[in-house]
């Protein structure tokens, strides 16, 4: 029916407009990611790839228990961080959305995002100072006479890793939930109460389901990058701070073994993707509507 030309049409203009950014993203991100996939099937050579196809890298990754242990540990760590971060973030998002007066909302959001933008490495290092053997907390508690020996469970273990990452990812967890809460039509809540529900039941039956799309976004935006973090675990994780990303870093950076490093990366990304997809699928009934 319509015999319109493509050139000069809205679709063509839009594609043309997006093309610089899209092409950049393809060349600098998509193509290298495909290269990683290719590398993972090639033979290792020091600092270079020998272009002979092989499945040995995956065989190695699947058979050597160290990879499974580290990947498992990374996933547990990321899951714990995600749970802690999102659970502590939810009340903040709720507070800003529902309790703070509208004109003060921007200020609160600004206050919450500022720490995120200050030097990441120095922030992590400072947690070491706060949690360490001679750290702020131990000194303070000993000074108050509450304890007599410095507490050692604060630093160089999973606790410190979780705490530090929860700190790093706080705004990433708060903002999506906040956005979802802001979208909730306030009259729905009144309707909930009007229909005889208590405040708490209204929260559970109306607010929470409507906020779930934000919670799911928060979970993914915290979980996926934390699986791949190695700086924080290295700095504050002590002996338990070895993560799957450390192996990737080691293989690529120190050993120059790109194929094995790639196989580990692909395997890790595969597992993370599967977990994320399952998670989204499990929450699919909340994801209806515009996103």
């Amino acid at each position: 029916m319509t015999k319109r030309k493509f050139l000069g049409s809205e679709a063509a203009n839009g594609l043309l407009m997006l093309s610089p950014t899209a092409i950049y993203s393809i060349v600098v991100m998509a193509a290298p990611l495909i290269a990683v996939l290719l590398f993972s099937f090639m033979t290792p050579g020091y600092l270079k790839v020998i272009w002979t196809p092989t499945l040995d890298n995956y065989a190695k990754v699947l058979s050597d228990p160290i990879y499974q242990v580290l990947l498992g540990r990374s996933l547990v760590m990321a899951a714990t961080v995600t749970a802690v971060t999102v659970l502590t973030a939810f009340p903040i998002a709720y507070f800003i959305s529902f309790i703070v007066s509208p004109e003060k909302k921007s200020l609160w959001l600004f206050l919450i995002t500022i720490p995120f933008w200050t030097s990441y490495l120095i922030r992590v290092f400072l947690w070491k100072v706060i949690l360490g053997y001679n750290g702020v907390i131990n000194e303070a508690f000993m000074g108050l006479g509450i304890i007599h020996q410095p507490m050692t469970f604060l630093l160089y273990n999973m606790n410190s890793v979780v705490l530090t990452l929860a700190h790093s990812y706080a705004p990433f967890a708060i903002l999506p939930i906040f956005v979802a809460l802001e979208k909730i039509d306030r009259s729905l809540l009144e309707a909930g109460q009007d229909l005889g529900e208590s405040r708490i039941m209204t929260f559970i039956r109306v607010t929470l389901p409507l906020a779930m799309s934000g919670v799911v976004a928060s979970v993914l935006i915290v979980f996926i990058p934390t699986v791949g973090d190695y700086v924080t675990p290295t700095l504050v994780g002590g002996s338990s701070g070895q993560m799957i990303a450390n192996v990737i870093q080691l293989q690529y950076f120190k050993l120059g073994n790109y194929p094995v490093g790639s196989a580990v990366s692909i395997a890790a990304m595969g597992v993370v993707t599967v977990i994320s997809v399952i998670f989204v699928f499990a929450n699919r009934r909340f994801m209806r509507g515009p996103q």
């Binding site: 993203s25 991100m29 290298p32 790839v49 996926i224 990058p225 990737i248 490093g261």
Partner: peptide, 19 residues
């Protein structure tokens, strides 16, 4: 695709580019 780096771990971007 363009927004993907928001959730992609930095290390993956780093190794992909390095390789």
């Amino acid at each position: 695709m363009i927004m993907l780096p928001l959730v992609l771990p930095d290390i993956i971007i780093a190794v992909a580019l390095l390789g």
